[in-house]
C-alpha cells in the first residue's frame, strides 16, 4: 500500500466532535481532508494516485482506518468529493455531495483568507484562476488546450535536468543571473532550456528562468483579460515550489500567500461543502468498509448506436467473470462513460 506522501494529523484520540470528510481525486493525486464543525482541518493526506482513482481512494480510507481513532467512522457526519473523478468516487463511497474543484478551492481558500480576491491554483494537469469578492466567486478560468506550466511539466523537466522537484524552489532562489526562457509552449520551453544549458548557464539560473516563464504563461493565458486584485492566495501541488511563488510575487508586485495546507485545499473545501449540505441530516456515506471491497473495473463496447462508446463499469471482484457489464445486477456498482447516459 502506498503511504501518503504528505500527512497531517492533529486529530485527538477521543473524537467527540462531528467530523466531515472531503476527498479530492484529481488527475495526478488523491487528497483527503477531515474537518470539524468549526472548519478546522484536523487530518489531511496527499497521495499520488497513479491514474487509478478507485484503488487510491480505497487505500486512503484503509489508511484512515489504521491511523485514526476507532470511532472515526461514527463521527463522520458528511462526505464531499471533488476533482475530475468526483462522480465516480461519490458513487463508490456514497458521498453526500460532489462539487466541481473550482468551487471547492474557492471555499477552501476563503476559509483561511476570508478577504481573498484572487486564487492562483496550479495542479498536476490543469491550472485555474478564481476571482472572488466578499467571499463569493465572481469569475474563474481554466487552462483550455494547453497544459504548459502545470505540475506534470515541471516534474518532467526536473527529471530531465536531474534536480529533485522538491529542490526546484531552492535552486531558483540561488540563481545569480536572469535567463529568459520561452514559456508559451512546453515544446519551445524545453528546447530553449536545452540551448541555454549548452550556452553555459547554470542550472539555478535556468530553473529560475523556467519558473518566470511559466508564471508569465499562466498570467497571459489563464488570467488573460482579467483584472487581478490582492490578496493573492496560491494553492495546488505546484504551490510547494517557492521558485514559482517568488516569480508570481515579482510579476504581480504583491505578496502571494501560500497556506501551510495548500496541497489539500480542494478536499478541505469539499469537506466544508459537505458540512454545509448535510446540515444535520444523516449522511449517505457507506463507511470505511468500502476499502475492503474487492472491486474490479470492466469495460465493454456498446454497439447500440454509431457512437460506439466504451462503457466502463465497477463490479465486485468475485463476480467479474460472471457479468458482462450489460445486465442489471447487484454486483455492478456503477457504470459510466456512455454519451447517451443509458448505462
Amino acid at each position: 500500500m502506498n503511504e501518503p506522501e504528505f500527512i497531517k494529523n492533529i486529530l485527538s484520540d477521543d473524537v467527540d466532535d462531528k467530523l466531515y470528510l472531503g476527498i479530492d481525486v484529481g488527475s495526478v493525486s488523491t487528497k483527503c481532508a477531515i474537518i470539524n464543525e468549526r472548519n478546522e482541518l484536523l487530518y489531511a493526506t496527499w497521495t499520488r494516485n497513479d491514474g487509478s482513482p478507485i484503488v487510491s481512494t480505497q487505500e486512503n480510507l484503509k489508511y484512515m482506518e489504521e491511523v485514526l481513532p476507532d470511532n472515526i467512522e461514527k463521527s463522520i457526519c458528511g462526505v464531499g468529493t471533488t476533482g475530475s473523478a468526483r462522480y465516480l468516487i461519490k458513487a463508490l463511497i456514497g458521498a453526500d455531495i460532489a462539487k466541481p474543484e473550482i468551487i471547492a478551492h474557492a471555499i477552501g481558500a476563503s476559509a483561511y483568507t476570508p478577504d481573498v480576491r484572487t486564487i492562483l491554483e496550479i495542479g498536476g494537469q490543469d491550472s485555474k484562476v478564481i476571482l472572488m469578492k466578499n467571499g463569493i466567486v465572481t469569475d474563474f478560468n481554466m487552462n483550455s488546450v494547453c497544459a504548459a506550466g502545470t505540475g506534470s511539466f515541471l516534474d518532467h523537466q526536473a527529471v530531465r535536468i536531474k534536480v529533485p522537484i522538491e529542490e526546484f524552489g531552492d535552486y531558483a532562489l540561488r540563481a545569480e543571473e536572469e535567463v529568459s526562457i520561452a514559456g508559451r509552449c512546453t515544446v519551445f520551453a524545453e528546447s530553449d532550456m536545452i540551448s541555454k544549458q549548452q550556452e553555459g548557464y547554470s542550472k539555478e539560473s535556468i530553473i529560475k528562468g523556467l519558473c518566470k516563464a511559466l508564471v508569465r504563461n499562466y498570467l497571459n493565458n489563464v488570467c488573460k483579460g482579467k483584472k487581478l486584485y490582492p490578496p493573492f492566495v496560491f494553492q495546488g501541488g505546484v504551490a510547494a515550489n517557492s521558485g514559482i511563488k517568488n516569480a508570481f510575487e515579482e510579476e504581480l508586485g504583491y505578496e502571494v500567500i501560500v497556506h501551510e495546507n495548500y496541497y489539500v485545499m480542494g478536499a478541505f473545501g469539499s469537506a466544508i461543502l459537505a458540512k454545509e449540505h448535510v446540515n444535520g441530516h444523516i449522511s449517505s456515506f457507506h463507511g470505511l468498509k468500502v476499502s475492503e471491497m474487492n472491486l474490479a473495473l470492466g469495460s465493454f463496447g456498446c454497439l447500440d448506436c454509431a457512437n460506439r462508446c466504451t462503457v466502463k463499469y465497477l463490479v465486485r471482484q468475485e463476480d467479474k467473470s460472471r457479468v458482462t457489464g450489460r445486465e442489471k445486477d447487484d454486483a455492478i456498482f456503477a457504470r459510466w462513460n456512455s454519451r447517451c447516459g443509458k448505462w
Binding site: S110, Y112, P114
Partner: peptide, 20 residues
C-alpha cells in the same frame, strides 16, 4: 454553482471567522 451561491449569498470566510 458560482451563480447559485451568489444568489443565495453563501460565503464561508466572513460568517465564521476561524481560529486555525
Amino acid at each position: 454553482e458560482m451563480i447559485r451561491r451568489k444568489k443565495k449569498g453563501l460565503t464561508v470566510g466572513r460568517r465564521n471567522k476561524l481560529t486555525i
